[in-house]
Design a protein around this nucleic acid. Sequence first.
DNA 1: GGTATTATTTAGCACTGCTAAACAAACATG
DNA 2: CATGTTTGTTTAGCAGTGCTAAATAATACC
Lengths: 158, 158
Amino acid sequence: MPRRARLQDPSAPSAPPDALADRLHSLAIHLLRRLRTQDLASGLTGPRLSALSVIVFGGPVTLGDLAAAEQVRPPTMTHIVRALERQRLVRRDSDPADRRVVRLHATPRGRTLLVEGRRRRVRRLAQRLVELPPQELRALEVGAEVLARVVQRLTFPA
Amino acid sequence: MPRRARLQDPSAPSAPPDALADRLHSLAIHLLRRLRTQDLASGLTGPRLSALSVIVFGGPVTLGDLAAAEQVRPPTMTHIVRALERQRLVRRDSDPADRRVVRLHATPRGRTLLVEGRRRRVRRLAQRLVELPPQELRALEVGAEVLARVVQRLTFPA
DNA sequence: GGTATTATTTAGCACTGCTAAACAAACATG
DNA sequence: CATGTTTGTTTAGCAGTGCTAAATAATACC
């Protein structure tokens, strides 16, 4: 029973990855644009929410490490942290061992607001996801997994 | 003939979609952060590139339609278009039929720059994609397809 | 013809991001 | 131990994106 496997070479991609890359890029832009409005509801913008998240879950962090984690320059992070400080969501201590560094930690209020803000931000998306048939939800999960690894590898530029 | 369907309710999702929503959100943020640096190489930022793309492929467009397509308010689009005009990438004509509207169309230079800029922007991502085994690439395509529909539905807020 | 609607611009604001340069503390070394 | 370098953060100033409110202009409606 001879099979005609040559007609369907499994190593040949069905489409040039450029098109997929473009599509993923566009998707990311539009997804964030649609979710962005929800930020304001919590009083926290995206970068602030993201920075707060690292502070809450990453324990006391120095400003420089936080900037690196958020892929942002220190002056930018100074600005963001200052805003979070004004809202009493984080506090800064000077490290007794090395008085150059600033150690950031979340206040209880910051902790609470993080959880609520994040949930709010993502709620609209989650609402659409529950409407999906299970196999599409699963496909999305698998795709997200693959993309996560791809993005991880993007960390080290070519 | 009583069936025990309750044991495996097919309408019950395997995992709470909140986690997936959060993950997709985070993925979008980090993907764009990683690709952002490439914008500068083309002299075009993300929103400008995106707007130019609509103008190039969407033929002559009014400013208002462009703003709607880009999910941005008209004043914001005025600003973006002004920058593209300064760079001689788009031109504006007043519509003879309705002199309130502005019709935007790309210059040849704008056309060229769009293609190059977009390719540059997405090149790093595409480079990572070709390294993927075919079935992962396929999974990513399917996931992107599902997500595109989800994002589409996000257009109409709950 | 007068009023309402529609399209765009102007003005002014907040946030995010950058670089360059200042500053302060810690480290290294001759 | 004094000097110079490195490291962490802040200050200053800029560009870009986004918003709303209000001005302006043209069209549509009654």
